[in-house]
Design a protein around this nucleic acid. Structure first.
Lengths: 401, 401
DNA sequence: TTGGTTCGGCCAGTGTCCGAACAAACCCTT
DNA sequence: AAGGGTTTGTTCGGACACTGGCCGAACCAA
C-alpha cells in the first residue's frame, strides 16, 4: 500500500516488493496457519506473486511451512506460519526501582521476561547506563545462545524523550540531557541492530496496539498509572509524537485549580489529583506496590474513606480522560500501571465523569478499559516497536552466522 | 514514497507511478519554475523517469512548459510550472450568518472568493441545503464557463461531522443528523466529482497547512475564535479526525471549575471563558463583528477594563493552549476567527500562561501565532482538502469536453 | 479408474524505473 | 569562426516485479 505522503522520496520497485512482503507477512501473522492460495485470494495479489513473496520470506526464515491440509477436496495446501525461531526483538523498561527486559519472537511469543531491582532514583546516568547495558548484554547473549538474531532494542524511559532518542529530562530518575541511545550503543560496542529510546507511555500504547485485546484499533490513548501520569497516543494506526517527541504529557494539565500542589511546582495537575501518589504518601518507590495492595484490600472490605477517595480520584481521572476524548476522539482510553488493580473502583466514576464532559454523545464511541498486559507493558511495547518496523517493510535478512 | 501501513492492500506499479507523479507534481509546486534536470537532481529520480513523468503530467495539463533559460552555460533548460488553468477546486463554509465560497486553481491561486449572507440560525436544513446548492451551482457554472474542470467540493460546517460526511450535530445551525454530503450531491444531480463535508476547524487547519506562513509544518493545531471554539489537529502532516471524526472538540474542556455557565450546560468550558461570546453579549450574529471592532478600538485607546478583560481571556486561552501543547506537542498553535483582530492583546498573555503550564521547556518548541488567512479560512481549507487528494496521488485526467 | 477440484509452479507479457549513451543547444576560449 | 566544454533532455537496452494463463500434482467422490 502506497500512501505517498509528504516525503520527497520517490518510489521504486524495491518499495513495491517491500510493501507486498509486509502485506504477506502481516497476513500470515493474522491468519496463520494459511496457504499461499488463501493469501492470494484475500490480498488480491496474483498467485505467482504470492509464491515469489513467500519464497522470499522463507529464505529470510520469517515464514515456515508446517505441513499439508487433509480431508479436503482438491490438492492439499501447504500451510504457512510465522517462523519465530531465528529472530528476537528486545524491549527494556527503566523505572525508579526496577529494570524490566522482555524478548519476543516474530510471532509475538514471549521468549523471556526478566525483572531486576535497580536504584534508578540514586544512580548516576553513567551507572544506570552500565547497569542497563549489562542487562541488555545478558539478554542478547541468551538470544544468540538460542541462535536468534536480535532485530533491535527499544528502551522505555519515564520522561521527555527527544525524537533522536536523547532523554531530555526524566524527573524520577534525576536525568537531564542523557544521550541514552548513543551511550547504550557505545556500551554494547556498536551492535548490528538499532537501539531506540522512547517514552514509557508511548511504548506502552504500542504494546496495547499490538498485543492487547484492542489490538489494531487505529486510535488509542494509554494512561500510565504511576506516581507520574503520562499518555501514549496512537492516531490512525501510528504513534504520534509531536514536533519534538514530547506529546502525551497530560500529567501536568490542570484539573483542579484549587487542587493540591504538584511536585512540578504547579497546582492541581492531573498527576497531583489522580496520580498514584494520592494513595501513597511514602517516597520510597518500593513501598508503592504494597500500599496499593492495601488500598485494594480496604476497598474490597468496603472501607468508606477508601471508597470515597477512589471515587474522587476516579472522577478526577475522568476529567483528564475527557480532555483526551474531546480533543482526540479515540476508540479507547486504556488505563495502565497501578490503575489496573484499582480499576474496579476507578473505572465507573471515571467513565461517568468523562461521559458527562465529552461533547460527543456516548464518549464519541470511546471505551475506557484497564490494561491487561501487566506491569511490563512498556518493555513489551519496546519489543512491539521493533516488530512494527519489521511489519512496515524493513525486513531482516539472516546474517552469515 | 511507500509507507505501507496497516491496510491489507498490496502495492503494484500503478502505485509507484502515482507516487512518483505526485512527487514530481509537489516538487514543481514548491520549486516552480524548474527544469526536468532540477527535478531529477533533487528527487533522486532518473532523468529518463522524470521525462516520462513530466510528459504524463503535461498530458493531464497539470504542468506546463513556459520557455527556456538563457545566459547560462550548457543547453538551455525548458522550465516547468504548474498549469492552473484547466482545473478548479471549490471550498464552501457554512456559518450562522453567511456562506463563503472559494475556488482555487491547482497552484493555489484564488479564482474567486464570494461571501453572501445566509440565515443559518433560522433556516431549516432543507432550506439551507438548497441555498448552498444554489451557490455551489453558481460557482461551478462560473468554473465551467472558464473551461475549468471541477476537481471537488468540500464544505466546512461548524459542528460534529461524522467520517462519512453527515452532520451529527451543529448547535449554532440547529442541525441534527443531516446527511449534507448526500443531500448536496443529490441537489447537484450527481456531478462527476466528490463532495465532502468536514468540520470547520479541521478545514481551517488544512488551509493553514497549505497556504499559511507555517505551511508544511507537520504538527499544527488551529483554534477557531468564534462564539464556539474548536480545534483542528494536524499531526505528522495529516489531519487527524479520531475514531468517529469528532476530534478537536476542545471548546468544552473545563478550564475553570468556578467559571461561568456554558450554553452546553456545563460550567467553565473553554468557549465559555475564552470564546468570543465573552466580548459579545448579543445573540444576533450580525452584531458580533462590530462588537469586536469596538473592543479593538477600546483596547487601542488603552481602556483599562477592556485591557484587563483581554488579559484574562488571554490567560484562559493560554490554559486551553497548554492542553494542546502538553498532549500533542505541535510546532505551532494558530489562532483564527475573531481571535485574529484581538491577537495583539491576547497573544502575550496566552503565550505566557501556556508557557508556564507546558511541561516541556519553551512550549516544546511551539509557537503561538494569529492566522493570516482572514475570515474565509475554513472555505479555503475546503479547497485545500481537494488539492491534498490530488497531491497524494489521485491525479485527475481531462474529461472529453 | 475417471472426473472434478484445488494448489502451486512455470513462463511469457507488460509496465516501470534505471544506467548509459547520445544529440541538441548554449557559452567560452582561441 | 571554429572547437571544446557544459548542461539538458531523449532514446535505448536491461532489470525488476506483478499479471494472466497454462499445466502438473495431489486429493476426494463416484
Amino acid at each position: 500500500m502506497i500512501t505517498s505522503s509528504a516525503g520527497p522520496r520517490p518510489a521504486d520497485f524495491t518499495d513495491v516488493r517491500a510493501a507486498n512482503l509486509a502485506v504477506v507477512l502481516r497476513f500470515v501473522r493474522d491468519n496463520a496457519p494459511c496457504s499461499r492460495a488463501d493469501i492470494a485470494a484475500s490480498t488480491g495479489l496474483n498467485k505467482a506473486t504470492v509464491s515469489s513473496l513467500v519464497a522470499d520470506l522463507i529464505d529470510r526464515r520469517l515464514v515456515r511451512e508446517v505441513g499439508l491440509t487433509e480431508n479436503r477436496v482438491g490438492r492439499p495446501a501447504t500451510m504457512l506460519v510465522l517462523d519465530g525461531s531465528p529472530y528476537a526483538s528486545i524491549g527494556l523498561e527503566i523505572n525508579v526501582d526496577y529494570l524490566t527486559a522482555v524478548a519476543v519472537d516474530l510471532a509475538g511469543e514471549r521468549l523471556l521476561s526478566w525483572r531486576r531491582s535497580f536504584p534508578g532514583a540514586t544512580a548516576t546516568p553513567a551507572q544506570a547506563v552500565s547497569a542497563i547495558a549489562a542487562l541488555t548484554r545478558r539478554v542478547i547473549s541468551r538470544m544468540t545462545r538460542d541462535r536468534r538474531q536480535v532485530l533491535g532494542v527499544a528502551v522505555a524511559v519515564p520522561g521527555l524523550i527527544g525524537l533522536s532518542g536523547t532523554v531530555v529530562v526524566a524527573p524520577n530518575l534525576g536525568w537531564r540531557e542523557v544521550d541514552l541511545a548513543g551511550d547504550l550503543a557505545m556500551a554494547l560496542g556498536d551492535p548490528g541492530f538499532p537501539i531506540q529510546v522512547e517514552n514509557d507511555a508511548n511504548l506502552a500504547v504500542l504494546a496495547e496496539h499490538r498485543f492487547g485485546p484492542l489490538g489494531g484499533t487505529p486510535n488509542l490513548v494509554y494512561l500510565t498509572g504511576e506516581v507520574g501520569v503520562g499518555a501514549g497516543v496512537i492516531l490512525d494506526g501510528r504513534l504520534r509524537r509531536g514536533g519534538q517527541g514530547f506529546s502525551g504529557e497530560i500529567g501536568h494539565v490542570q484539573i483542579d485549580a484549587d487542587g493540591p500542589a504538584c511536585r512540578c511546582g504547579r497546582t492541581g495537575c492531573l498527576e497531583a489529583v489522580a496520580g498514584i501518589g494520592v494513595f501513597v504518601s511514602a517516597t520510597d518507590p518500593a513501598e508503592v506496590e504494597p500500599a496499593i495492595e492495601e488500598v485494594v484490600r480496604r476497598a474490597k472490605a468496603g472501607d468508606r474513606p477508601t471508597l470515597d477517595l477512589l471515587a474522587r480520584v476516579g472522577r478526577d481521572l475522568g476529567k483528564g480522560i475527557a480532555i483526551a476524548t474531546n480533543l482526540l476522539n479515540p476508540e479507547a482510553v486504556i488505563l495502565g500501571g497501578y490503575y489496573v488493580p484499582l480499576a474496579p473502583w476507578l473505572l465507573p466514576a471515571a467513565a461517568a465523569e468523562a461521559r458527562g464532559r465529552t461533547i460527543a454523545a456516548d464518549l464519541g464511541g470511546c471505551q475506557i478499559v484497564a490494561s491487561t498486559l501487566g506491569y511490563g507493558a512498556a518493555a513489551l511495547g519496546g519489543a512491539a516497536r521493533v516488530l512494527d518496523s519489521v511489519d512496515s517493510g524493513r525486513l531482516p535478512s539472516l546474517h552469515a552466522s
